Computed example of a mutant assay.
Amino acid sequence: MGKEIILCQKENRLVALKTSPQQYFADLHPKRIEDVFLSNEPSIISIKSKHGETVARAAVSYLLSEALEFFNVKETMSDIQVAITVDLILEEYPYLQTDDLKLCFKNAMKLKYGQIYNRIDGQIVMSWLKSYDIERSEKADIESYNRHKEVISKEETSGLYYDEYLAELERKAEQGDEEAKKALEMSSMVKKMLCKR
């Protein structure tokens, strides 16, 4: 049920992107990578698969132009440079969500990825994304490891040893539980097969 709700929320966000892009982008406010992990924003690849490459390209272009608008530099990107950079982003980072891009570009505006010295081009934008992606991967690894530790901890405190499991099955089988009887028979067959080896 939880996955269905998340899928529905992602679908709603995809529809919002298509029907009201300015409002959609105005509503994106990630502050940390953890915010992105908890969001239901679509990835570039899901936008492309649901609405086509043109919409995916437009979404990335919008976010990039928002960032470029922020900087007051003499040498900014031409339309052709923006188009090439957008294509590179679609190719290299299709798994990033729209709020990933928003956060990356916001971090660039905060000079998290270094000073801007009177020029912005595709190389600089791609370096921002590379730095962001490394940070994102590190956070994802840490979060994954912490979840793993939590699951292991729960298993250690709430699990049964095999002997306890068998004793519980025998108790249930004695009380007439047919499923427990079948499980005991299966366990017995597996033991016999293992002993023959």
Rank of each mutant, 00 (worst) to 15 (best):
G176F: 03
G159P: 01
A140Q: 05
R147K: 07
E168W: 14
Y161R: 08
E143M: 14
E179F: 09
E170F: 15
A173R: 00
R171H: 10
H148A: 10
Y162K: 05
T157K: 11
Y165D: 02
K154R: 06
Q175D: 04
E143N: 14
R147L: 10
E135R: 01
E174Y: 13
R136M: 02
D133L: 12
G176C: 03
D163V: 05
E150P: 06
V151S: 04
Y165Q: 02
D163Q: 12
E178V: 07
E164Y: 07
E135Q: 04
E150W: 03
E174R: 13
L169G: 00
R136H: 00
D177W: 03
E170C: 05
K172M: 08
I152E: 07
H148W: 13
S158P: 08
E156P: 09
L166T: 03
E156D: 07
R136Y: 01
E179N: 11
K172G: 04
E168K: 15
V151F: 06
E178I: 13
S144P: 10
Y145L: 10
I134N: 06
E143R: 15
E174V: 11
D163T: 05
E150L: 08
E168A: 15
K154Y: 06
L160I: 04
L166K: 04
K154I: 07
I134H: 03
R136D: 01
E156H: 11
D163I: 04
E135N: 01
L169C: 02
A140I: 04
Y132H: 01
Y162I: 03
E156R: 15
E178R: 05
S158Y: 11
E143F: 15
K139F: 14
S137D: 07
S158A: 12
G159F: 01
Y145G: 09
S144W: 15
I152M: 08
K172N: 03
Y165S: 08
A167H: 15
G176I: 02
S144T: 15
K172T: 01
N146M: 13
D141N: 14
K149P: 06
T157W: 12
Y161C: 07
E168R: 12
R136T: 00
Y162F: 13
E170M: 15
E138C: 13
A167Q: 14
D163A: 09
D133I: 08
D141Y: 15
D141W: 12
Q175K: 09
D133N: 10
I142P: 12
A173F: 02
Y162W: 08
L169W: 01
E170T: 15
Y145R: 11
K149R: 05
E135C: 03
